[in-house]
Simulated assay, not measured.
Amino acid sequence: MISDEATSALDPKTTQSILELLKKLNEELGLTIVLITHEMQVIKSICHNVAVMDEGRVIERGPVSQIFTAPQEKLTTDFVETSTNVKAAIERVTKTVKLDELPANQELVYFNFIGNATKQSILSELSQTYHVSENILFANIDEIDGESVGYMIAIIAGDLPPFNQALEDLRSQGVKTQILSGRTVREGEASC
């Protein structure tokens, strides 16, 4: 079944009803649905696979959880950051927190927790181990095709070099990080 913009310009309640109907058709009838939409919230809520198109060609495709947690293309990254509110949160935070005025022992860090990492107290454990403090400025947990995905922006203060080394080791635990600095992002091995 092809569903072209079935939820476009609908109120939230009607959108949810349409999505529940499409999901029911998929599950009960085994019906494959090609859902065409610009609404990433719709994709997050009912899709298993996604293809991102730009100017008539597929630029990225794969399981929804993979595309949302590790987008490869700039357009896809923009879509994901907008739909997860991360982009707006980073913009709000960096307007409030003057990055170039942070003391040398502080930095702004973006965390992306995937799967089981959303259920663990990773940051708390790191702050105790490395004697740093954190000021959480934004946090959210989302469910994407049955996978929990968390987003957090925090100011970390303390002895940063050992803490940053520990951040690089978090990838194996389902945590990606970005250290936000001025207008650039310093990316280490564990960055997304």
Rank of each mutant, 00 (worst) to 15 (best):
L180Y: 02
E55L: 13
I36G: 05
I179Y: 01
I2A: 00
V185P: 01
P161F: 08
L31V: 15
A154V: 08
D169N: 08
A51Y: 08
V175N: 00
P162K: 10
E187D: 00
F163E: 08
T94S: 08
I43F: 05
R61S: 12
C192H: 12
N135C: 04
E39F: 02
L108A: 07
F79M: 09
S127K: 07
Q106V: 09
L102Q: 14
G146E: 09
E73G: 00
L35T: 14
V42L: 12
K119T: 06
D145T: 11
T14A: 15
S3Y: 02
F113Y: 09
L29Y: 15
M1D: 00
T84I: 09
T37V: 15
V132M: 08
A6G: 01
D11V: 11
S172C: 00
K23M: 14
T94R: 13
L160I: 07
Q72I: 00
S172I: 10
N49I: 12
S181D: 00
T96P: 01
M40G: 09
L25P: 02
L170Q: 01
G30E: 14
G30W: 14
S191G: 13
P71F: 00
V97C: 05
V97D: 01
T69N: 03
I114S: 01
D145G: 05
I156V: 12
T82F: 02
T15I: 12
I122N: 02
C192P: 05
S181N: 01
I179N: 00
L108E: 07
Q66H: 10
A89E: 07
A89P: 02
L22F: 05
L29D: 13
T82W: 07
T76R: 02
V58K: 03
E187F: 00
L22T: 12
I141H: 07
V80G: 01
E81N: 05
I136Y: 09
T96M: 11
G174L: 07
N135M: 11
D100G: 05
M1L: 08
T14H: 11
P12A: 12
P63V: 07
Q106L: 10
G174T: 12
G188W: 06
E134N: 10
L167W: 03
I114Q: 03
P103M: 13
E81L: 13
G56N: 03
R92F: 01
G146V: 14
T129Q: 11
M152C: 02
I43P: 08
I36W: 07
P161Y: 05
T129N: 07
C47I: 15
E107A: 08
P161N: 05
M40I: 15
I141M: 11
L25E: 10
A157Q: 14
Q106W: 06
A88M: 11
F111R: 05
L25T: 04
